[in-house]
């Protein structure tokens, strides 16, 4: 199950803590906004990646899994508790 990272660019405020935490996975530009890896993430490092996501004060990073992304969004939202 290959996962990818996704940034909500409207939420992201360029704190850059994600890139500080896993610099070899998440790059930072000169304004400290993340540059995400092109390919799928290394499954063996998901723990670190999760912690990098948790560092984000804006909660701007999410994991996208292909099987979830392929599900119909409308149906998925209805199934998630608390979703509108």
């Amino acid at each position: 199950m290959e996962a990818r990272l996704k940034v909500d660019w409207i939420k992201c405020d360029g704190y850059g803590l994600c890139g500080d935490f896993v610099p070899d996975i998440i790059g930072l530009d000169e304004w400290r906004y993340p540059i995400l890896p092109e390919g799928p993430l290394d499954g063996g490092r998901m723990h670190e990646i999760q912690r990098a996501m948790d560092c984000c004060p804006m909660r701007a990073l999410t994991l996208v899994r292909p099987d979830v992304a392929a599900a119909r969004p409308g149906r998925l939202r209805r199934l998630l508790p608390g979703a509108r």
């Binding site: 660019w9 409207i10 992201c12 405020d13 360029g14 530009d29 000169e30 304004w31 906004y33």
Partner: peptide, 9 residues
């Protein structure tokens, strides 16, 4: 003016 890479880049 919402997304950093667009604003600064």
């Amino acid at each position: 003016g919402q997304c950093g890479p667009c604003v600064f880049g």
